[in-house]
Design a protein around this nucleic acid. Sequence first.
DNA 1: GTTCGTTATTTGTTATAACAAACATCCAAC
DNA 2: GTTGGATGTTTGTTATAACAAATAACGAAC
Lengths: 236, 236
Amino acid sequence: MSSASASEPDGGDVLPDWVRPLVKESLSERAYRELRVALMRGQLRPDTRLRLRPMSARFGISATPMREALLRLVAEKALALDARGSVVVPRLTLDQLLEIRAIRTDLEGRAAAAGAAGRAAEIDALDAIHARISLCHASRDFARAVNLNTEFHLTLCRLGQMPILYEIVELLWVRCGPILSHLYDDGVPDWEPHPHRRIIDALRRGDPEAARDAVREDIERGGRGLFAHVRAAAAG
Amino acid sequence: MSSASASEPDGGDVLPDWVRPLVKESLSERAYRELRVALMRGQLRPDTRLRLRPMSARFGISATPMREALLRLVAEKALALDARGSVVVPRLTLDQLLEIRAIRTDLEGRAAAAGAAGRAAEIDALDAIHARISLCHASRDFARAVNLNTEFHLTLCRLGQMPILYEIVELLWVRCGPILSHLYDDGVPDWEPHPHRRIIDALRRGDPEAARDAVREDIERGGRGLFAHVRAAAAG
DNA sequence: GTTCGTTATTTGTTATAACAAACATCCAAC
DNA sequence: GTTGGATGTTTGTTATAACAAATAACGAAC
């Protein structure tokens, strides 16, 4: 065996930085990704049926990769199967919403606590996102505020440097995607200070427990619009 | 519209109890299920490649449902894809193991706390499982003890009546499956009382916080064999 | 008008084949 | 012995077709 490391390709560390391994994205992966962002942006309403062949026609691909993309989202519980085996956008029940909130409290709280040791630049990015949220509130641009709120929480989770935890939390957000547009059904929050600010301040102070508690408060207070909507949908 | 409920099939409630809707299990679902239990029982070693056509030949099915089953497990992170796109049994890193332990502490702890309001019969079932674990320790039947320990934790989680949380925890256990056989690499625990017993007692008393704390202790103390193994595997 | 049975279409499921890329094998050349 | 390249195999990916079950559309009988 040669003296060079076998795991490194030839001259791997003399190549310029901009030489990246080019990502080959399969057709199914592209369809998966597009559907996923559509879900998270609330562009797919609950109970919508995603039939195989019509969908593959829309994406301009054959049934095989389309089915693969749909079933991958089903495996992640972002989509579901009805009795027929058709893929549908799931309708969140009140119990599920309560459960997701509880899990998010645990996991996002842990991520925030772990992120209290994070770098200042990353905390600044969080601050910038919240500033944009405030602007959206002022201009009553709630659609954008919803997306920014998601981005705030996911960015916060990335601070924790826990990839597995992050994936779980992200999936929970994807599951809530179809109803997220109702986040402000309860009205615009005028809390002072906003829980996001308490989170940011706790992170800046490097106080893990304060960060965790602020996350808990944010999750408890926010999301009341979602509960109002789910309750109304269950009654209707 | 007739006065009968439209959601009930004709005469649905006059049929005997043993008339159940028969579950149609697709080929891909059967392959998926078999692979899943094989993973959880530690019958698949890390870095094992599961090539598409050989696997479909072993299962006696075509490539399409086999691919579906494999990719479903990949979506659940129970399996992984290497650079070639081949499905492989993932090798847990130390960081991943630490992260999974932390997440389990949060989620299983919450499930145990919620389960403190559970019925006595279910807690008795938990007690019975632990009794069998003790017998396995006495007879040094560690393979069975590992499976029973998994069953103990998952049964405990079911007590919490939180389906989403349960699914997440179960996936974490599946991910640990390939290395679970090394649970006793560190020796047989002779803790007195065993943390499982503290969990059971706390549940019987209906003490949520004590249950949560006992789970935390169990997860911290147990699993040291796993860490010893992962450390050794990383060095080797 | 309602109900029942028939037909036609659409659905999910599975098998098979074609394709390109990656891999392994082998042999010649030095 | 090592290197280099040609070749044959195996791999993952995608398209297509066949199948059965479910659904929808339609029309006849009461």
